[in-house]
């Protein structure tokens, strides 16, 4: 019963990802797209932590940690490329 709450929260986060993808696709500048991508990454990590509860598995939390670190590297790299251009 209480797990329904986590299912609802995960579905809501997926909806938020879809909504913020509008800024990712239509952002006027590259910087807006990077900001939207950063938000999507944060939401993905948070919903992975929620999904680990639903799947009863620790492995998904480890995947979330690696995802967060890799998305950080990606953000830094895009920021560096933006600055060089």
């Amino acid at each position: 019963m209480i797990l329904r709450l986590f299912t609802f929260a995960g579905a809501w986060m997926a909806g938020l990802m879809a909504v913020v993808s509008w800024r990712l696709l239509r952002g006027p500048t590259l910087a807006d797209r990077v900001v939207a991508l950063d938000a999507v990454n944060t939401l993905v990590v948070a919903s992975m932590l929620l999904g680990a509860v639903l799947l009863h598995g620790t492995w998904m939390v480890d995947v979330a940690i690696i995802y967060a670190l890799l998305s950080y590297v990606g953000t830094l790299y895009i920021a560096r490329v933006m600055r060089k251009d």
Partner: peptide, 11 residues
């Protein structure tokens, strides 16, 4: 990572 990444994007 969110704090430092946001700082890098802003700069």
């Amino acid at each position: 990572t969110n704090a430092t990444g946001g700082h890098a994007i802003a700069r």
